[in-house]
Computed example of a mutant assay.
Amino acid sequence: MSAMTDPGSVRLPPWLDGTWARLRSARDSQRLAHAMVITGPQGVGKRELAEAFARSLLCRARDAEGYACGRCPDCLLLAAGSHPDLTRVGPEPGGKSSEISVGTIRTFSEHESLTPSRADWKIALIDPADRLNPSAANALLKTLEEPSGQTLLCLIAERPGLLPATIRSRCLQINVSIPDESVALEWLGVRLPQSDMDPIIPLRLANGAPLRALAEFDQDLFAHRRQRLEGFIDLASGRRDPVVEAAAWNTQGPARMLDWLSGWVCDLLRLKAVPEAVRLINPDQREAFSRLAERIEPAAGHRFLKRIMESRALADSNLNHSLMLEALAIDWFRLNQRTEPRRY
Rank of each mutant, 00 (worst) to 15 (best):
R159H: 11
L76K: 14
P210G: 04
T104C: 11
L12I: 06
S113D: 05
R62D: 05
C59D: 01
Y67E: 06
G103P: 05
L12F: 08
I167M: 10
P128Y: 00
L269Q: 10
L192N: 04
L235V: 10
S182Q: 13
F289C: 10
L214Q: 12
A299D: 15
G208K: 12
C154P: 10
A33C: 12
D85Y: 12
P14D: 00
L185T: 08
C154E: 08
A313Y: 04
A68Q: 07
R11T: 06
D6K: 14
T115Y: 06
L214I: 06
R286E: 03
R60E: 10
M309K: 05
R334E: 08
T39H: 08
L269Y: 10
V176A: 03
I308W: 13
V176R: 13
A80I: 07
A315K: 08
L269S: 11
L16C: 13
D6Y: 01
D316E: 10
G189W: 07
S177H: 06
N175Y: 04
I200F: 08
D198H: 11
E310Y: 06
C154F: 00
A209K: 13
N336H: 15
W264E: 03
G301P: 14
D130R: 03
C69L: 01
L305M: 03
G238I: 02
A119K: 06
S97T: 15
P164W: 02
Q42G: 09
A52H: 03
A79M: 06
N207Y: 05
L49Y: 09
R11N: 03
N318R: 14
L23H: 09
S25E: 10
A165C: 09
L292Y: 04
D284E: 05
L140H: 02
K46W: 01
N318T: 13
P179C: 09
L235C: 07
G45W: 11
R60P: 03
E146P: 13
R88T: 09
V274M: 10
I200S: 07
I126K: 04
L162R: 13
E51I: 14
R27T: 01
A3K: 12
A139H: 15
P7N: 03
L49R: 04
I201G: 09
E287T: 11
Y67N: 10
E276N: 09
A213S: 05
A157E: 01
A288N: 08
P147E: 01
W260K: 13
K272T: 12
R334L: 12
E48L: 14
S195I: 00
A246Q: 04
L292D: 01
E99V: 10
R62Q: 10
L185S: 05
Q252W: 02
E297N: 08
D63P: 06
E65D: 14
L49V: 02
D28V: 00
A255E: 15
L235D: 05
A52V: 04
P341D: 02
G95D: 01
